[in-house]
Design a protein around this nucleic acid. Sequence first.
DNA 1: CCTGTCCGATGGTCAGACCAATTTTAGACG
DNA 2: CGTCTAAAATTGGTCTGACCATCGGACAGG
Lengths: 244, 244
Amino acid sequence: MQAQIQSVKRRRLHEDIVQQFHALIREGALKHGDRLPAERELAEQFQVSRSSVREAIRSLERQGLVVSKPGAGTFINTETLDSVVTLLSSTFGTGSDALRDAFEMRHLLEPPIAALAAQRATPEEVAKLREILEEQQRQIDQGDTGVEADTAFHFALAAATHNAALIKVVSAVEDVLQHSRGQSLEEPGRRQRSLASHRQILERVEAGDYRGAQQAMDHHLTVVEPSSPQSGETGGSEPAGWRP
Amino acid sequence: MQAQIQSVKRRRLHEDIVQQFHALIREGALKHGDRLPAERELAEQFQVSRSSVREAIRSLERQGLVVSKPGAGTFINTETLDSVVTLLSSTFGTGSDALRDAFEMRHLLEPPIAALAAQRATPEEVAKLREILEEQQRQIDQGDTGVEADTAFHFALAAATHNAALIKVVSAVEDVLQHSRGQSLEEPGRRQRSLASHRQILERVEAGDYRGAQQAMDHHLTVVEPSSPQSGETGGSEPAGWRP
DNA sequence: CCTGTCCGATGGTCAGACCAATTTTAGACG
DNA sequence: CGTCTAAAATTGGTCTGACCATCGGACAGG
């Protein structure tokens, strides 16, 4: 008699086991250094096969929560950086917050990225940026939202910093936000404003004005592409378009 | 006689498989969306049992690098933030640019993080930060460099932003830079300066002064923990083509 | 008390099997 | 010939039972 139907997503057994261990660790039932029961014993307790127990342990190990020693046993390990991160992410929401977090991270990263790009962009990279904006103009004239060119611009700007780590992180963030941005650009007026804003950024980058570029990007993110229209708290405000 | 005894860790088979996949993804042999061979086929190719293959896949899945769909297959997934972070950590250590990039990224992220922390830190988190600084003081008094507490401080500060994405990225960056920071703190004077600098940051965070916190962190990173020993200042415009 | 050996417990791996979901294919139908 | 449908093949998820290398502690011997 399950009054509440959980997500339709079928849980895999080992994932379920992992979450049970997360709970046990969070509640303090399992502390650092504790040794957990043998795999065969766990299998019996959870009423699953040893394979599932082992796959669960593999996940926990990759999260830094446990370490396995052949012949000795498997031990709780909550004194690593990894484990802290895992428990934090596990405690805080893992759903709608992600989008908000990504927006915030972009807002932190992009202005200084624009500044770095202004200092380091090669003529070829500037040309590439200009080309992208022309493409964006074409897409808009054609009635498209220009979201691809929009994303491409931010990515090319990150590339102009010549910082591989930054490029990777930005690409991940942009990818997560691309869908949301597409929605934002549905309003006709925004497309032109976004393009104009991009042009302003490029102009400062071209001039090598890193301060101006940073401010232009900040303005772009604050005014033209507002991060989170809805003030929703962690309530089940799933963005539209969620489909299994 | 203390001949350099290198640990002869036995590599577990699934660990080996995981690393092989890391390499394949890094080299570009496996791109986003690619479907990798069936588990039974992989078992035959690697000459291991299906169990080991599955445990390896479980690790990769927990790292966000792949997703498994029953009946369909297992697919490469490198467009999530998680996957980027893992690949960053996995890639680091290869190439001197990576270290420089990481320093630069930290310098971009940490000041605004300090500002966010000043706005959002709970009393418990402030207490945790203070506790970390006391621990740093103890370590220094004891003749240690205090590098663990140093890293812990930056991490706890990121945690105070309540932004899971930021926390993960910062943890990856801090992890990479911890070793280098340890070297930097070898100079005796630096330890106390670093601690004093941390105290200043905490003071601004406690006061909720996000502007002051940001400036204090910027000062900390610029003056106390300089990224590049050489003159390299961000002001100068880098000549084109300084990097392949 | 110390030392070396033995044995049970434990993690790591293997092989084969069945199930459920999905994809592909073959066949029926218009 | 194209389209829809049902059967077959494929694939991930799970289970069972087994063997091995290693570790820990008990135990006997010095």
